[in-house]
Design a protein around this nucleic acid. Structure first.
Lengths: 110, 110
DNA sequence: TCCGTTGGTTACTAAAAGGTTCCTATATAA
DNA sequence: TTATATAGGAACCTTTTAGTAACCAACGGA
């Protein structure tokens, strides 16, 4: 999903390389609330398909921003959570949330 | 480029709807430095093609986050700048820049 | 008269992303 | 005995996005 080449010089580009994808940002939004099971993520993110959720989770795991923990149970239970690195992305999501709130307000009663 | 349906309830999703695209974020990065001509944007954003730049500029203009000013000269001169709304996105780009700096540092001498 | 410059547009093609459907394993409950 | 629940994987297809190349208009200068 992400190419593992050298980092771009521009820090914005570096960041964008990791979370430019819409779904990843929504996954982050969910995981910032705490550890979640696969099914919880699936139902918490409107419109995401199982395939796309899996793909993005794998990619984010590879990038070291989330952690996956599978319990050897039946039926299977798999929990996802942010890594320490993933937690550091919080300010970005928060700024998006803040902006979105202001924008919604502007649109709705502007 | 963006569908003009109702806003999502989630503010993060609202924001993501406007700037989920990698190129738009890089365009914002450029325009946060100030007004730029089409050609300057083109050369300032590594790897962007003329078509994609034009498309995204149109879309962002429709969304009201940038402004386009064409001067009736030959050869043509077209300047792009952030609208007031566009300026309010600055904290998002800044947080990405901050994060990217930290990440680069971590990778390079971690 | 023809060239170069700028900021596009259009048509065609390739690649990436996403959607859908079907399949699996197995403990447990009914 | 059989249905159920969970977290995927595989195959196939459609849609979206991006890249490439060609073309254009208009004026000023050589």
């Amino acid at each position: 999903m992400e190419k593992k080449k050298e980092l771009p010089l521009c820090p914005v580009e570096t960041t964008v390389g990791l979370i430019s994808n819409k779904w990843k940002i929504l996954i982050l939004r969910e995981l910032l609330k705490g550890t979640k099971r696969f099914g919880e993520l699936r139902s918490g993110i409107d419109g995401i398909s199982q395939k796309v959720l899996t793909q993005n989770l794998r990619s984010m795991e590879e990038d070291g921003i989330i952690q996956r923990h599978a319990y050897p149970e039946v039926p299977p239970r798999v929990e996802y959570s942010l890594s320490d690195l993933g937690e550091t992305l919080k300010p970005i999501i928060s700024s998006m949330e803040q902006w979105g709130l202001g924008y919604q307000e502007m649109i709705n009663n502007g």
